[in-house]
Write a protein that binds this DNA or RNA. Structure first.
Lengths: 369, 369
DNA sequence: TTGTAGGCGTTATCAC
DNA sequence: GTGATAACGCCTACAA
């Protein structure tokens, strides 16, 4: 029974305490970028504890405030930390606590001007709380998106904010990852209704627009939208008809194309080929609207004289267009705040879909002067 | 001597092997978001090793490929990993290897449309390499910037890409952090010349612009720039005079204001107050140029008929302006690639400043048809 | 080639 | 309130 000295409970030949293994360079050794000489070996909490003459545990408690600690000692530890220039190793801390204070975010394409503003808003909320944002771009590709989502989860982000590339193709990865980390969808959403979502209230937005169009005297309107799989486009498409009807606007068959300015330009051609122009052209986003304005200008059609045009989002360049574009502004800061609120709330609550009210921004593209 | 059984080399009452401490919930226990029940306890490399019937080290080697491993075993391990749905815990890995496969980036303001394109380019390069981008926004504030830089360093990013807020105020934090993590400046730079920098070749850009202006018949030109501390603005300001002179353009005193569209609009007023307009208005970036176009339009001055206008950056909306804006396009993808190349190169090399050649994009704002 | 045994830096548990 | 210690999950020097 006692023949094998290595039974459970014994350790084999432990190295003498306090004597580092040596023989290889410890991974923490930094080297100066310029000189190549070793510099500023990382200051750990052990160093702080030693300098303050306390144990590592006490130092930790004094610094994190996890538990009460003697008045005098707290000061000594903090002073030592400052003197040594100690900064907590967040990686080690994360391994232990399972918290990274880092939120992951995946957007379909950061160069779509809608997202930088949203990112900025989220980053602002997080920064106030001393958390960081890990941002990924899905290149409008659900496969890339899935890889990014997993990469973020592997890095133990505390939460995940995703604007899904596709209503259908994004669903699987999102649903599966939601089992291991809190997830909130923003702007767009997948078909799976068990996932939280925060975005603009498209119905309200279209109501604002159609109401305004009716007020400026439009009788007929057409929607220029996208065939894309994005849910925002779909909702706006679905809600346009009813909203228009409620305000006495008659509508023609919507024009659907690819997301982007180019489509807006071409849509004008398609529209003219149909026959006489409607009173109003309602675009599902500002980029298409900017394309439409460009197309109309090229065709020598005056805005708002012959036709009025609206966008959606207020992407920062809408105000600079010629004529400046009437549009619906998204409540970015509110959206950001709600996303984080949902991520931070205790798990187990019901699924939420939060649609926030937008603001109508009236500019010259719908108003004669 | 042997009185104290706890001398170095002995462990005190280790817990029986294989018997978890119990009494509290292990941190890795996940709970379903919806049901609150424990689900899918984290799969670690131990589980994989056990399932494959090998030791943890062998499993690690098989998965990371750090060292050769038996053919059969490799397959067994990989199969087990797949079957269990094992995914590496990057936090633990990072603690051990001191690598996070994560790059930090700090931009002055992500809603400045120049940066999303750059971020996208960098993200693309990284994604190809299975690395992630940790993005922060400095809110145009060097204090915030410093906090962000340190937060990223504390998270052990493998490198740091920074577009400094200020030539002077950003220098201290950047220089100090460069001692512990590779840093490269992008677009803008601080005064400290010991830091690597990658950006566009402003001199070449201004040469392209002034050459083009001379070709289209301009004789006089004025620069609309910024008083900001950004280095790009400074360089363009400094280089404008010489470049113009080389191509026989006479220049007036530059107009300097705040970064942004509004300044462009106002600059037109200031310019008109001076007297007759020059032949060309050269703006240090597209946003100012868009403002100038708007201001000129409001004043009923025709572009390019009475005055020609140029921008800098080709920010995506330059093409949509009325008239479309002649500008200088930055080589984003090249800039991104060079940043990463500098970060990844072995330490100890000389400081590099890499200025990449831009492209002139001629549009209607300088060309009569 | 494979297994054993620390240890990366931190925090949580336990005993005092 | 304080200290000793183990463990988070992984990787790797060393021994076999």
């Amino acid at each position: 029974m006692a023949r094998n000295p290595r039974r459970a409970g014994f350790r084999t030949a432990p190295v003498a305490a306090g004597q580092p293994p040596a023989g290889r360079e410890p991974p923490g050794t930094a080297r100066s970028r310029r000189t190549g000489e070793p510099v500023a070996v990382r200051v750990t909490i052990r160093d702080v504890a030693r300098a303050a003459g306390v144990s590592v545990s006490t130092a930790s408690r004094a610094l994190t405030g996890a538990r009460p600690v003697g008045e005098q000692i707290a000061v000594r530890v903090r002073d030592a930390a400052t003197a040594l220039g100690y900064r907590q190793n967040r990686v080690a801390s994360a391994l232990r606590t399972q918290r990274t204070d880092t939120i992951g975010m995946v957007v379909p394409q950061i160069s779509n001007p809608f997202y930088p503003v949203l990112v900025e808003a989220i980053e602002r909320c997080l920064g106030d709380d001393n958390r960081q944002l890990l941002l990924c771009d899905a290149r409008r590709d659900a496969t890339v998106e899935s890889a990014r989502i997993h990469a973020l989860a592997d890095r133990q982000v505390d939460g995940l904010i995703v604007a899904p590339v596709s209503t259908v193709a994004s669903a699987a990865a999102l649903t599966s990852i939601a089992g291991e980390v809190p997830v909130v969808q923003v702007d767009r959403s997948v078909a799976d209704t068990a996932l939280d979502w925060v975005g603009v209230d498209d119905v309200a937005g279209l109501r604002l627009l159609t109401e305004h169009l009716a007020q400026v005297g439009a009788r007929t309107a057409v929607l220029v939208g996208t065939v894309s799989e994005s849910s925002a486009g779909r909702t706006r498409l679905a809600e346009f008809g009813p909203a228009a009807a409620r305000h006495g606007l008659s509508t023609a068959e919507p024009l659907l194309g690819a997301y982007g300015v180019e489509w807006g330009v071409r849509a004008v051609d398609e529209l003219r080929a149909r026959g006489p122009l409607p009173d109003a052209i309602v675009c599902v986003n500002d980029e298409i609207a900017l394309g439409v304005l460009q197309g109309l200008r090229a065709a020598g059609i005056s805005v708002p004289g012959e036709v009025v045009v609206t966008g959606f989002d207020d992407n920062g360049f809408a105000a600079l267009a010629d004529p400046p574009l009437t549009t619906v502004r998204q409540p970015h800061q509110q959206i950001a705040a709600e996303c984080l609120r949902l991520l931070d709330r205790p798990r187990g609550g019901p699924t939420r879909r939060i649609a926030l009210a937008p603001t109508l921004i009236v500019r010259a593209s719908t108003t004669l002067r």
